[in-house]
Design a binder for these strands. Structure first.
Lengths: 116, 116
DNA sequence: TATTATACATAGATAACCGAGGTATAAGGA
DNA sequence: TCCTTATACCTCGGTTATCTATGTATAATA
């Protein structure tokens, strides 16, 4: 991770939900996807992501299921739930509102205000 | 605080440095200023801000000094140091880069890319 | 053969923020 | 007068998030 631990906080679930909203994915795949989609900015450690996925499953945002891959190896896929979709929308709003507020304080442009 | 603890992480020092770059301020004043500048989004608790100021002083980003107010009460003002100004620039870049990366992952616009 | 990539998982350390509490003064209303 | 609110500083303990390190196992590659 290139950023301080701090900055990540709170945006992790938003990003994972975003990815799972597009298609079902397994843990390792999510890590790679976050890496590439962020322009190599977010290199999540496994020790970070797996506990997050378990937490999200406990919260009923996602549901995990085992599926065999072509190579015969079993992977644990996650799919977003209706609850998770609702949460995704809430987190997206929260993120926009947060980013907008930070920018107001530090004197950046009022990005995000259109969605708040 | 309206946001999850998580989201704040890492942006606190950036925002405080931003305010102190404009003028010297004391703790309580910073809390009020963050509140008003953010459109009442950031209501920092004293239990959050004071330790942050102490940490920043330890890191030599700011320097505290006591000054008497008109009413005779003594306040602890903080002024940003040269080190702090450098840090401010670094944190500003980091924030833009971070916000941009999150938006790329969640499919928002590429805000911040111009400054990265 | 050794290393790297894939793929899952947990335990302990570290750090950040918050809630709650403490101290003290001053102003304003009941 | 008393009580509440605002100002103004501070610390302790709890919760939570992330990282490091470690463990397991297989397959591909050097």
């Amino acid at each position: 991770m290139e950023f301080d631990r701090g900055l990540l906080g709170g945006s992790t679930i938003l990003m994972v939900l975003s990815l799972l909203h597009e298609k079902d994915m397994y843990g390792y795949e999510i890590i790679k996807e976050l890496d590439s989609k962020s322009g190599n900015m977010f290199q999540f450690k496994e020790g970070t992501l797996y506990p997050v996925l378990h937490r999200m499953e406990n919260l009923s945002y996602v549901k995990g299921y085992r599926k065999e891959a072509e190579n015969g190896k079993e992977r644990k896929y996650y799919s977003i739930t209706a609850e998770g979709v609702k949460q995704l929308e809430a987190e997206r709003k929260k993120w926009k509102s947060f980013a907008c507020s930070v920018n107001m304080v530090i004197g950046g442009m009022a990005y995000g205000s259109e969605g708040v």
